[in-house]
Computed example of a mutant assay.
Amino acid sequence: MDNFVFYNPAKIIFGKDQEKTAGEWIRKYDGHKVLLHYGGGSIKKNGVYDTIIASLKANDLPFVELSGVVPNPRYSLIQEGIALCKREGVDFILAVGGGSVIDSAKGIAAGVLLNEDEDLWEDYYMFKRGPEKALPLGTVLTIPATGSESSRSSVVTNEATHFKRSMAADCMIPKFSIINPKTHYSLPPYQIACGCADILAHLMERYFTPTENVDFTDRMLEASMKTVINYAPLAIKYPTDYNIRAEIAWVGTIAHNGLLNTGRLGDWASHDLEHELGAIYDIYHGEGLAITFPAWMKYVYKQNPKRFVQFAQRVWDVEFSAEQEERIILEGIHRLERFFTELGLPIRCSQLHIDHSRFREMAQKIMVNRDHEGEFMKLYEEDCYQIYCLSE
């Protein structure tokens, strides 16, 4: 087990009707003027918007609004939000939505406090480093998926350059996050599937580690993966079952709050491979991960077969056979693909009408400002290209 420092100050307010307390929490964190940041019309259709507005007004909190966040949130909207916050004297940001909204809010929060000689995109997102200060923010989570409600990272797309990149810093961890599983009832089945694929990917990125002797976090990750595997189909079948939704919501938060990667080095190659797909083809993050993760597994499993055997046995209940190690590994990968397929997700690029024509370009872009990709097995341009070919 590696040395580690675990730090996560995000206060989680979980349960029914908790979004009504948003204004009270902003006041507790000394917010005086709020940027209300959200996506399209879904929070207006399901009533969350009206509840938040009422809470802000009840707590005498003036606010300005910035809507329009889309999947693969755009850097241009972050720039618009930074200018709005500076012009209006905003001192607190409330993100109401899923990971795209929260990631966009984090970018705004960091950008408002940058020095004049700093460029948010070039200095931070492109170099995957984090700022030292940001405006405080809170979240009301309406889509369980990315774990951004308690993470230190922000992932956005620069539509001008077609790069999708991340930055991370402790100052971007939300002060509080409100999670009411009832607000997730209106999500369409495909969005539930994409969200669960994202949660599972966060767990697997941590699970496939080069670090030895991490059985405690292995066991927590395996239990979390089994929770996603068990409850994702149920969430689609019974969309208004509170207890099912609560399981998905909570495992999604824990999957990405830093706890499960303590003492171990994670591998984020599958995420970065997907980011290039998302940047160019604007696909949902979860559906892209359902494509890139199995392809990555097929390429790297010989690096440490024992870990893949453990994954197949403990997570997918593949029967043990010492003389058939490779069969066990491939069966585990097959069961992962079957799980994605049963959720209605693609597992090949061709299912989204994406061909090989830009695979080399994407492999080249992954390596910009990076010495290598991944940690389980260090990948370079040709490796990334071959993984894309496996995903075709």
Rank of each mutant, 00 (worst) to 15 (best):
S321C: 13
E361Y: 12
R360I: 08
R358F: 10
Y301V: 03
P346F: 05
V315E: 01
E342D: 15
E319D: 14
C349F: 07
K302R: 13
K298I: 06
L336P: 06
E319L: 10
P346K: 03
E325T: 10
K306I: 12
E319C: 08
K306T: 11
R327H: 14
H334M: 10
Q324K: 15
V309Y: 02
N304A: 10
E361F: 12
I328P: 00
M297V: 02
E325Y: 00
R348T: 12
E342G: 06
F339W: 14
E326I: 07
H356C: 11
W316F: 15
E326P: 02
W316C: 03
E337Y: 06
Y301P: 00
T341H: 10
R348E: 08
R360E: 14
I329K: 00
S350F: 11
E331N: 09
Q310G: 00
V309P: 02
H334N: 14
W316I: 04
D355F: 05
P294N: 09
F311E: 03
H334D: 13
Q303I: 05
Q303P: 00
F311N: 04
I354F: 06
V318D: 02
Y299K: 07
R335K: 15
T341E: 11
G344L: 08
R314T: 11
T292M: 15
F359R: 01
R360Y: 13
I333P: 01
V315N: 01
K298L: 13
V300I: 11
Q313V: 15
R348F: 10
W316D: 02
Y299P: 05
H353I: 02
H356N: 13
R314F: 09
L330P: 01
P305W: 06
E326A: 05
E331D: 11
E326C: 04
K298S: 09
T292R: 04
E342F: 06
I329V: 13
V318I: 15
W296S: 01
G332T: 05
W296D: 04
